[in-house]
Design a protein around this nucleic acid. Structure first.
Length: 649
RNA sequence: GCCGAUGUAGCUCAGUUGGCCAGAGCAGCUGAUUUGUAAUCAGCCGGUCGGCGGUUCGAAUCCGUCCAUCGGCUCCA
């Protein structure tokens, strides 16, 4: 007897007996019609598929909605198809590259052929998409053989899809059709286009086919869509807010840094407030490093080209660097240093070391210069001249783990002092399939990789392990942080290096009285001071921690009569190393408060007749309001306590 | 570097199809006001309209080119 019922188990543990061939959507409908309206896709026995696929055997089912990342993926991917359909409608004969969902929305790459699709076309495309969405077109899936697929697109003259299909395995190829539009696609898709209630095409940009600079540049249109109009409004609102946190805007407003095209693109100018802020960051790190046994060194901004030939950087990056400068008579060539490690290796080579001397830790705030392509420059996050909080640790292979851990702990202390919680650690290891390309012994690599993995485990850090991302000379660990618009940046980095010790012939004498190679660790907790400050500006929206902020206290006299008293208070603050100023303008107190609030100065001391008589100050906290009056001494204690807590890491 | 867009005062922006000496708010300066928890009032200063070249009787406006910026792509020792 054929059993025509199947058992479906839902995540809540409940099981349902259903006829064979029931779809996920049917099951959703049985639970509630509301759920049926919200089901975007289904996860059946762990794999995500269309909600309209009939279930043929006992299954574990998870219904995916907007609340599930996979649900949103299907939604956005379907939106990309819909956009392509609209574009094909408006521009018959265009060819399509790939059109995936991304973190926030989707894009599609288009070869417009003879058409010219620019920003101005977006509203019309958007309008067309909305029309098509209302038709509630279904996404019709057809499994197709590789040959059929190739024939289809060859006939169409679509070289992009042909190239994609050629890389696919026969038997795993499918087409999806919405309306007249057929697209090569693995799926899954949402039940029908009517789910897409709100869509916005955000930007248009060139994008090289398959990310390859040497190949054709396609037109990429980015968009985002939602199942509810309100969600789109909220998203656009969020983007607006993010723009307000842009470090380029806040950095100018708070007078942290500036650029001048007369100085040069990508060459940041640190204004006095920015320079002082940076100095505080550097001092903080200096202190941590001193405690951790680092020694400070200083090396010049240029180095002989031969130094970089020794390190290997010249061969690899020389053509893409600032041209070397030459001495007038001898014609000796020097490079602006793109990194500090070769200099530090030469420092190491100035004497001999025994195993008892290791580890040696050389630290320097080293300013380096790298030629970045003009289109890539971006505020303080991507510049051509920047300062690394660089250090190189020379140690024995056995010391590696301990040293690595020491570095991680410094970085964690810094992140804590700056209240940076939203970061992810990326561990880059060897590609297991290609052990040939790596320098250094297998044994050492294994030791290093194991050490790194153990450390992130011990410290319980949110980690993403990337195999094959390690450099040829060693594994590494990067701290990744997102900016206001969700773009990811690398801040702190720790990198093991088996290569430079060989190239620079670094040695130490072991207990066996033999010469050995030390291992090198490159590390920079901030990464670059420029980028770090940029990310910090966006994370705090300019409201820096009290210990770091340029002006901690603004003293606001009610009128000119209290200027002397205000100045006396300021002296008290200065005696306690608290940074502040008196606002001596002939403005009303409301105006002074407003301006100070906008400058994000954390504390305001309002002083007038009452305060002077009672020898007190009236304290107001930025963003919060009046805290009442207190003795100046008590206020000073308050500031000291807070900064001490912030820095007691 | 590539695709697209943008560039008017320190900042944010107006300047209709080319047409008298280019406008506003904020900031700045000067003066008045001496103020109690998010903008006091008045006057003034400030611009080679990103640079250079061209078209035109006439260019912020049209064309070319270079520079810079923005959104992406590519790259990132």
């Amino acid at each position: 007897m054929i059993n025509n019922t199947i058992k479906i188990q839902l995540p809540d543990g409940s099981t349902h007996q259903k006829p064979r061939g029931t779809t996920s959507l049917d099951i959703a409908g049985d639970i509630s019609s509301g759920l049926a309206r919200n089901v975007l896709a289904a996860k059946v026995n762990g794999s995500v598929m269309d909600a309209v696929v009939p279930l043929e055997s006992d299954s574990e089912l998870k219904l995916l909605t907007w609340d599930d990342p996979e649900g949103r993926d299907a939604f956005w991917h379907s939106s990309a198809h819909l956009m392509a359909e609209a574009i094909e409608n408006l521009y018959p004969g265009v060819k399509f590259g790939i059109g995936p969902s991304i973190d926030q929305g989707f894009y599609y790459d288009i070869d417009p052929g003879d058409y010219e699709i620019t920003q101005d076309a977006l509203p019309a495309i958007e309008k067309k998409i909305k029309e098509l969405a209302k038709e509630k077109q279904t996404f019709k899936r057809t499994a197709i053989s590789k040959k059929e697929a190739l024939d289809h697109y060859t006939a169409k003259g679509d070289e992009y899809k042909v190239e994609l299909i050629q890389e696919l395995e026969d038997g795993h190829i499918s087409f999806y059709q919405t309306g007249e539009f057929v697209d090569l696609c693995r799926g899954p898709h949402i039940p029908h286009t009517g789910f897409i209630k709100a869509i916005k095409l955000l930007s248009i940009a060139g994008a090289f086919w398959r990310g390859d600079e040497s190949r054709k540049q396609l037109t990429r249109i980015y968009g985002i869509s939602f199942p509810k109009k309100k969600l789109l409004e909220e998203h656009l609102q969020m983007l607006e807010e993010a723009r307000k946190r842009d470090h380029r805007k806040i950095g100018r407003e708070l007078e942290i840094f500036a650029f001048s095209h007369k100085v040069g693109a990508g060459l940041p100018l640190w204004l006095p407030k920015g320079a002082e802020l940076r100095e505080r960051l550097e001092n903080f790190l200096n202190k941590l490093q001193k405690e951790a046994g680092y020694q400070k060194v200083i090396t010049p901004h240029i180095g002989n080209v031969n130094l970089y030939k020794t390190s290997g950087h010249y061969q690899k990056y020389g053509q893409d660097s600032f041209r070397p400068i030459e001495t007038p008579h001898e014609g000796e060539a020097f490079m602006l240093k793109p990194m500090n490690c070769p200099h530090h290796c030469e420092l190491y080579n100035t004497r001999s070391f025994s195993f008892r001397d290791l580890p040696v830790r050389y630290a320097e705030f080293g300013t380096v210069y790298r030629y970045e392509q003009s289109g890539e420059l971006h505020g303080l996050t991507r510049v051509r001249g920047f300062t690394q909080d660089d250090a190189h640790i020379f140690c024995t292979p056995d010391q590696l783990k301990r040293e690595f851990k020491g570095v991680i702990d410094i970085i964690l202390k810094i992140f804590k002092a700056l209240d940076l919680k939203d970061y992810e650690v990326q561990v880059s290891l060897r590609d297991p399939g290609d052990s040939e390309k790596y320098i250094g012994s297998r044994e050492n690599w294994e030791k290093a990789e194991r050490a790194i993995l153990e450390i992130v485990e011990e410290r319980d850090m949110k980690t993403r392990v990337e195999y094959g991302e390690a450099a040829f000379y060693g594994p590494k660990l990067d701290f990744m942080v997102k900016d206001a618009l969700g773009r990811e940046w690398q801040l702190g980095t720790v990198q093991v290096d088996y290569n430079l010790p060989i190239r620079f012939q670094l040695e130490y004498t072991g207990s066996d009285n033999q010469k050995h190679r030390p291992v090198m660790i490159h590390r920079a907790p901030f990464g670059s001071m420029e980028r770090f400050v940029a990310v910090l500006l966006e994370h705090t929206a300019g409201k820096f921690p009290l210990w770091l902020t340029p002006e901690q206290v603004a003293i606001l006299p009610i009128s000119e009569k209290y200027h002397t008293y205000a100045e006396n208070i300021l002296s008290l603050l200065h005696n306690s190393h608290i940074r502040g100023q008196v606002d001596q303008r002939a403005e009303k107190i409301g105006r002074k408060i407003r301006d100070t609030e906008l400058k994000k100065t954390p504390y305001m001391l309002i002083v007038g007749e009452k305060e002077e008589q009672n020898n007190q100050v009236s304290v107001r906290k930025q963003g919060e309001g009046d805290l009442g009056t207190m003795d100046p001494e008590r206020f000073i204690q308050l500031i000291k306590t807070i900064t001490k807590e912030e820095l007691n890491v």
